[in-house]
Design a protein around this nucleic acid. Structure first.
Lengths: 334, 334
DNA sequence: GTGAAAGCGCTAACAA
DNA sequence: TTGTTAGCGCTTTCAC
């Protein structure tokens, strides 16, 4: 059996309270006493029981992380950002994948609350009434790379609408008139934002919106290939000369499908992706893409959460991180 | 404040013990009583406090996962396997990255024990004396994709030596005599095994081992590119006609570096990677690679851990999963 | 089939 | 500066 605080107290010839004080760095302990306790701890190989501590103090120093799928590069990098900051502030992380399934998300949330986490970082798709209801009156929750249209919840994002607007504007400036868009499911508010940016750019430049040019994929490489194939099959003559793709992984699929069909990237068709995952460097031609700082989104979310858990004042609950477009070789030099 | 078991007991007009019994599915409760309790729980929106429960029962239904770096595809997929099985058995997961730093690993281990996890899945590099000492007498630990040369610890792996042996043998059978090997740091026992397989294949075929042909990378795409560049710079005439690469990500680097130098894959140089991450499909030519079932390794590890935590008899503590080689287009058709 | 009561290992008043 | 003493919310004997 492991030693308890009581054993240490006896060994050191002091009371439990004193032991507790030295554990928690309470300054009201005479140095000599402190040393006695420290020695006793060492001799007994004492390791504090975080569960007992959690029960007594109502703080567990663990936070929950709800994520759609940890195996996707995008989320894995985000998770690393969360984790690094968490461990910097001595929090541990309970990580669980939701597959963006609402029921699963809600159940997970409940389980995490049962485990008495001090806060939650949430990544997901649409925030519904049920989510809001669940979040309300529980622990602090911050949304990472997740949009809540009510704008009431703390969150960390980039400006998706603007980012896509810029990418499309770049295409237009370079003379493209026929620009396709491979997006994710429109149910996800982020994809809604992206579509808005696409339409605004077209609109401001007098290019009419053509529903046929918007394809929906499921974020995978294969769905990227399929998306382009669909475009090719549709209308050989009206084939787009530029394509904006909502994720890097799909963008790779688009590029390879183009090449398989003897289209040259970027000569016949320019491509811009989204995210700037490590994948962007791993294609030929290398992928021009919107840089979404995933690691930073995770890190900033977690940092924000620590403040919230600490009841510190935060000036801005909804932070929007800067983005940029990194031009590599799937677009022409400019 | 949330309702406690005491509130439920009062609301239902029974004792705490009875409430506890219905929570835990104890059959010694009259159906009518059970219903009363259930109703009371519902009315009070009762949510059991897992921390209190953990303290009283000495089981937390959470397991710790120590992983080198969650942002690497390989580990992310492994983690997903762990997670799926864990949630199937109603465990939660405390996930933390160690960067393969021994001190960090040991500290993490200690923290996890402090949090009273019921078991640990461990992924890392070399298992030292210190690791063994720490593991000993604590909670059940299973190693995933991690080799312990003493072979005393429960673990789930594939046969790395054999896998590489087969890949190199394939090259030799196809007439290659000059075969390079891009490996990871030799300090990692897995890479030691791989090197052994490489040497055995050469040896059995009377090809002499040439130290110059073994390059060490750090698993990244860039280090793959560098590795090939090193080979190219070394000796244009003695350039290998086949390369085995220890991870898919490095293999992509090798392929692209080859192409950048006007070598054709697979005509001038055949390439086989290792892992079969999603990356393997995302290159041109697509990558032939050793299939290491990462998801399964994670899933099987976690399943094994549940048995250990449950004190079930397990026939085989060290499981070796089957591997295979998937031939795609970075090697010649056969 | 149900209840009373003693912990689980720690924190946090409150005293001294 | 230190000790005493209630809890924290639940499980688990042991009676009845």
């Amino acid at each position: 059996m492991n030693a308890t605080i009581y054993d240490v107290a006896r060994e050191a010839g002091v009371s439990m309270a004193t032991v507790s004080r030295v554990m928690n760095g309470n300054p009201n302990v005479k140095p000599a006493t402190r040393q006695k306790v420290l020695d006793a701890m060492e001799r007994l190989e004492y390791r504090p029981n975080a569960v007992a501590r959690g029960l007594a103090s109502k703080k567990t120093t663990t936070v929950g992380v709800i994520i759609p799928d940890i195996s996707r590069t995008f989320f894995a990098e985000l998770a690393r950002g969360i984790e690094d900051i968490a461990s910097m502030y001595r929090y541990n992380i309970i990580l669980s994948s939701s597959d963006q399934n609402e029921q699963k998300e809600l159940d997970l949330f409940d389980t995490l609350l049962g485990k008495q986490v001090d806060g939650i970082v949430y990544m997901g798709g649409e925030i519904t009434e049920k989510h809001i209801a669940a979040f309300k009156g529980s622990v602090p929750v911050v949304l990472a790379a997740t949009i809540d249209k009510t704008n009431m919840l703390p969150s960390v994002n980039i400006n998706y609408e603007e980012a896509v607007y810029e990418a499309i504007s770049y295409f237009i400036k370079n003379g493209h008139q026929s620009i396709a868009f491979v997006n994710g499911r429109i149910e996800d508010p982020i994809n809604k934002e992206k579509l808005l940016g696409y339409r605004r750019a077209l609109n401001e430049n007098g290019i009419s919106f053509d529903e046929e040019k918007v394809i929906v994929g499921d974020y995978t490489y294969n769905s990227g290939m399929q998306a382009l194939q669909t475009l090719i099959d549709k209308d050989k003559d009206n084939f787009p000369s530029a394509i904006f793709v909502s994720t890097d992984e799909m963008a790779l699929g688009v590029i390879h499908c183009a090449q398989d069909n003897n289209y040259s990237v970027p000569n016949d068709i320019e491509v811009i992706g989204f995210d700037d995952t490590r994948l962007a460097e791993m294609v030929r031609p290398t992928l021009s893409t919107v840089v979404q700082p995933m690691y930073d989104i995770g890190a900033v979310s977690m940092r924000l959460l620590t403040k919230l858990m600490n009841k510190e004042k935060v000036e801005q609950q909804t932070v929007v991180l800067p983005h940029q477009i990194k031009y590599r070789h799937s677009t022409h030099e400019r």
